[in-house]
Design a protein around this nucleic acid. Sequence first.
RNA 1: GGGCGGUUGGCGCAGUUGGUUAGCGCGCUACGUUGACAUCGUAGAGGUCACAAGUUCAAAUCUUGUACCGCCCACCA
Length: 901
Amino acid sequence: MEQLSKVYNPKEVEQKIYDYWEKNALFKTSITPDKKPYCIVIPPPNITGILHMGHALNNTIQDILIRFRRMQGYEALWMPGTDHAGIATQNVVERELAKKGLKRQDLGREKFLEEVWKWKKEYGSTIIKQLKKLGASCDWDRERFTMDEGLSNAVLEVFIRLYKKGLIHRGNYIINWCPRCQTALSDEEAPHRELDGYLYYIKYPFKSTNYELQTTNYITVATTRPETMLGDVAVAVNPKDKRFKELAGKTLILPLIEREIKIIEDEFVDPEFGTGAVKVTPAHDPNDFEMGKRHNLTPVNIMHPDGTLNNNAGDYEGMDRFEAREAILEDLKAKGLLQKVTPHRYAVGHCYRCHTIIEPYLSKQWFVKMKPLAKPAIEVVKKGKIKFFPKRWTKVYLEWMYNIKDWCISRQIWWGHRIPVFYCKDCQKKTGMRNEKLETSKEPAVIVSKTKPGKCPTCGGTNVVQDEDVLDTWFSSWLWPFSTFGWPFNQSSVQKQEFEYFYPTDCLATAQEIIFFWVARMIMAGMQFAGDIPFRDVYIHGTVRDKTGTKMSKSLGNIIDPLEIIDIYGADALRFSLISITAVGQDVFLSKEKFELGRNFANKIWNVSRFLLMNLKEKVEADLGSVHKQFKLTIADKWILSQLYRTLIAYTKALENYKFNEAANLLYEFVWHKYCDWYVEIAKLDINSQKTQIILYKVLEKSLRMLHPFMPFITEGIWSKLDEEKSIMISSIPHVQKQMINEESEKTMQSLIDIIVSIRNVRAEMNIPAKEKIDVIISAHSERLKDKLLDLESYIKTLAKVKNITAVVKAKRPKQAASCVLDKFDVFLPLKGIINIEAEKARLNKQLKIQESVIGALNAKLKNRDFLKKAPEAVVMGEKEKAQITKAKLEKLKESLKNLA
RNA sequence: GGGCGGUUGGCGCAGUUGGUUAGCGCGCUACGUUGACAUCGUAGAGGUCACAAGUUCAAAUCUUGUACCGCCCACCA
């Protein structure tokens, strides 16, 4: 068999191994009637994306699940793909154009889109390549893109279905407007961030022919955005507010613009806040918009889409909104109308793409009515058909769903699915309607269709134009779990069969940020269009942060690049480290050094495999199930097998409950601290025996299989050297052999470990060189234990560097010896001319102290009548036993101390 | 304003049916190269689990409250 290099070098092998998997089509899936399906759809990364730690964690988790299930015998499909990421991608391409001094408008829509597709072709699969480096075992033949023909068709189909049901409508509302991207955004795309700002108190004078009066007779309003005053159409007070009792209906002169506005009464106004009087700006504030409607006020829009002021802004026309703010404040101050300014902390929406401050902006947009869609999506979660892990997210989800608001889906950009709505200009002319007035599906001028109609079905006119807007990117993402299968299906198509086989998918793994954007909407879409839940489990993992707890982002420069980590430490090290430090649902605080954990572990696995291969005499064919019939097994043999299967049981349970870190730590503990530290060391005693070789080999081989979902590359690399057939990827997770779990051997092994550790301990304390072999006397607490000791002698000799062992029963401490008091044995090291009595004294005293505190606690318990009466019998028995052992130890320790003197 | 998460040895964290001498990794101290591994081995030091009250025979683990840190949601100008 081939030998391995001394240090594991991931760089050499990872790419080759991945190619081997792909070449042999090991990720491929198809309908397999005798297998149960297991399916995960990937959260499609943006085509603009490059792999960051969040991706690394998210996809490692999915790959673990997929590989684990595949090895459990499921037909495990991991459906991959990418998202067209409307605004993000458009921004990237626009930035490229800007370098050439061009704007997208210079190219025109068609040409610009060509550019985007070109960009996509060149860079759009970067992230996919990076996922492969991570080891992702997606079924790449099924890779989808949200703007593929099929997925686009699904998008249009859904739009039309919703429209026909009356769940999509178009209307004038205040929406979140990004003046930089110049598009509408949904509420989710405009997250609120707190800002330190000011509350400006502005005097609005009453109308009077007497100019003097105007400056003394006024009402004060407070605002955080003074520039919006140019769009004020009223001032509102609460009807119950006594201070303003007589003022309703009175006329004010809006400063700077000199427009006459009225004082109105509205319940919405909170008398406690500010001055109790509110400026009403229906075109620039959602509340004011509603108020305006209630009072029949015509909104005054003062802003261009780019955030500069328009011709309703008088002298301020052309200024940017924040520039205008300063100018207006100056002017108000000059006129003595700025009463005061107080610091004020408030939350404002920011564009989630470019972080520009959002402008609440009145415009005509398309909306999805969400309440009816939410209803079934709430039900399935409440009934537990869909489960969140960790559970607490259920509540977050439900709260959001209960308060769901309509979804603004139109975007004023070019890259995306164009809204399948056409307007008949001829009808518009005939009915005298203007485009702006179209609001309901009943309007004859609106034609909803996947393709451009040749002529208007109402009037036969050919003057038909398509809506300029595209759909929110998430309007395609929410269909992802079924659109990727080819929905809507033709009857009896293969796609339909596959869908029926794999859907509902099993698990969706994602980060918390995306629950509302995506998870909630997928559930609604699944229920509405696919007729069933999109997935059974939702696993929400934490956010990856830097070691100070700040979210990693490019702009902050605090990212740790997964590709760099892969380059230095290897993909397996990255994966294993990331997983083992990520507790369920907890955020991860990362620093580069943490990846050493995985690298070191990989190296350990590599080296113990290397050791095995160096010593393996022939191919191991035997099975563990029969090895105990064929050979007489030692304590250590039984112990490692017992531990193996205990580990397997716990490992499986952990993975089935999404406790990835637990499973990882179990493997680490087993492989390193049980197999390597103890079993391999013991096995060296008779490394050439067939029995030992079989067990060494088989335990490693099974460990590798358990490790494979976490560390796919190194396990495959070693596997290929083991003369095993095929790929480890398609081997199976070992089966539990319950009969191999052997408590007796575990107890004995524990005693052995205790003995060896105690001898090593004394050696260290007494500064006995490692090379110097010593004699020990071991006193068993019973005849039976003494017999067992004989089995263990050779282990002790080797592992604790002992020359002669004298086994006795219940012996007293010999003179001139260091002594260790254990549960079932006492160990004496006769040290000729004791090197250091003080050190021994100190050692014994330390032990004495520990045992005394233990016995103290135990005695207190055992003296407590309530404890004896109320605690379960097993617990009481256990404590009594412990007390007995501890008492015996104590006595011996005291005796040893006395003896020493 | 509402909701959620965290607070365990120097650092980073585990610890869900309440009962272990409270674990792990890094770091630290001492020793060590007998050929799997210095990306290693051996031994050790170091914490009464934020604080307070309560439930219980028994609490890091359950309840309530407090403090600090962090996150999410929210139309109070």
